[in-house]
Design a protein around this nucleic acid. Structure first.
Lengths: 146, 146
DNA sequence: GTATGTGCAAATCATTTGCATTCTC
DNA sequence: GAGAATGCAAATGATTTGCACATAC
C-alpha cells in the first residue's frame, strides 16, 4: 500500500473543510517536511525567506493549526518560552529525551503507549486523540561537566 | 518515618542556597499547598489577595522557579497560552488526561514510568531528572455532543 | 463576485526586568 | 551594613488580530 504524500493529505483536508488551497500554505508545508527534526516559527520563516519565499510569519502562525488539525504536525514543548513543532506524518511515534545542560534532544520509541491509551479509553470513557511524553535529564557529557 | 512538611523542605533549600527566608515566599508556598489541583499565576495571585496578602505577581513569578527547583511544584502544560502548576510534594506520581472539549482534567497513575526512566538512563547514559506525560481526548459527554 | 487568505503593522497578554525601597542575615 | 527580595511600572517577546488588498473558487 502506497502512502499518500503530506501534500495530498493536506489538500484533501482543505477540500473537506471548504478552505482554500494557496501557494503560501503549501510552501510552508513543503518546507516543514524538508526540515529534519524540530523547528520553531522563526527558523521556519528564515528558511522560507532563504529560498526566496515571501510568506509572512502571520501566515505561518495561521497555517500551523491546520497542519496540526489534520495530523501532519504536532507541537513539541521544550519549556523554553516558545513552541517548537515537528512533522509527524509517516514517522514512528516517538518521545523526546532532552538534556537540561546542553539542550540535546534524543528521540526514543514509546513502548506501551498504545496499551496505556487503550486502558485510559476503557477506564474513563474517553476517546483518545493523542499524547505527549517528555523526559529530561543530564547527558553523560553534562554530568561530567557538573 | 514522618515526612518533612513542604515548608521545612523549602527552608532547608533556602538555607542551603544562602537565599533569604521571606514571608512572601512562604505565603505563596502555603497557598499553593492549600490549592487542590492545578492553578495558574493569576488564580494564585487572586487567592492570595482574597486572604489579604499583598504579594505581587512579580514575586510569584520569581518564587515559582525556586519551588520547582526543590521539587515541591511542577509545571503542567495545558497548551492554552500560559503555564499551569501543581504541587507534587507528597503526591503519587501521576499524569493528566485532558478533555479537548470541556477542559476536564483527570489524573491517572503512570504504570511503567520508573522502568522507562531506568531504561533510558542505561541506553543513553543520561541521569534522568523528570518527565511529563499528557494525554488528550474527548470525554464521554463531549463525544455525544459531537 | 464573494468569501477567504495574505502581509503589514498594531495590539495583546503572559512573563521578565529595572529601579528605588524594604527586609534578612 | 551589605546583599537580597519586593512592588511597581515599564519592557519584552511570542503570538494574535484589524484592515486593505489580493486571490481562489
Amino acid at each position: 500500500m502506497v502512502m499518500k504524500s503530506e501534500i495530498q493529505v493536506f489538500r484533501e483536508y482543505i477540500r473537506g473543510r471548504r478552505l482554500r488551497r494557496t501557494p503560501e500554505r503549501e510552501q510552508i508545508l513543503q518546507e516543514i517536511f524538508e526540515i529534519h527534526g524540530h523547528f520553531d516559527v522563526d527558523e521556519l520563516h528564515l528558511k522560507l525567506r532563504d529560498k526566496g519565499s515571501k510568506v509572512s510569519k502571520a501566515s505561518i502562525y495561521r497555517a500551523l493549526p491546520l497542519f496540526m488539525d489534520c495530523g501532519l504536525v504536532r507541537e513539541v514543548d521544550f519549556s523554553d518560552g516558545h513552541w517548537h513543532y515537528e512533522h509527524i506524518y509517516g514517522h514512528a511515534r516517538h518521545s523526546h529525551l532532552r538534556c537540561l545542560g546542553c539542550g540535546e534532544v534524543l528521540e526514543f520509541e514509546e513502548p506501551g503507549m498504545g496499551r496505556l491509551e487503550a486502558h485510559l479509553a476503557r477506564e474513563y470513557g474517553y476517546r483518545i486523540k493523542g499524547h505527549q511524553l517528555q523526559v529530561q535529564g543530564l547527558c553523560a557529557t553534562c554530568q561530567e561537566a557538573e
